[in-house]
Amino acid sequence: MKLLLLEDDTETRVHIVRLLEAEGHIVDTARTGPDAIFLGTTGAYAVLVLDRMVPDVDGLAVLRALRAADVQTPVLFLTAMGEVDDRVAGLRAGADDYLVKPFAASELLARIAALSRRRPVAEVATVLRAADLEIDLLKRRVTRAGRRIELQQQEYKLLEYLLRHEGEIVTRSMLLENVWSFHFDPGSNLIESHMSRLRAKVDKGFDRELIHTIRGAGYRLDANP
């Protein structure tokens, strides 16, 4: 897909472009805020990746200008400042997601993929399905192959998130942020503990595993083998 990257640091820009191109994306780059605003308003991009710290017109101003011009393209905010206030400022200005520098390549790719495949329909759906797994969001009931699965609340939230991002890689920090609202790394094997319990209930005893571990990146729930 086609992406726009606003980044003033040449080394970082080249690095990110290579990463994204290796993944098969087409990347346009902007070094300054006005360039990014100009390119962003063309509406030709699936996702805009904006760096917060750019001289003169910074990422936040670019984002505000784009949203004011009614550009609804999903925006991933890159910031070297990960503090609560900065994050809130970015989200309030209309960012869809943010990533604190420095970040792992897999993290950036996973978040761009998640943003680009945002399906608004799924937000209002009352039933989520992947292969023979089904979540009834209203009754908060999970079944696989027609069999009822009892989940703890945290397990349910985790499964719902995986299912909403079916086929996509979700990273550890995406899970921490979106399932548990942890905007920091607690340092323990929190995710592993929950994931192993969820797998024991969702995958164990069925002929096919739905939840996959992607080494060095995260997890993926796949409907198709």
Partner: peptide, 8 residues
């Protein structure tokens, strides 16, 4: 959130 971690 921590119950399974603590158990593990």
């Amino acid at each position: 959130i921590y119950a399974p971690v603590i158990e593990d």
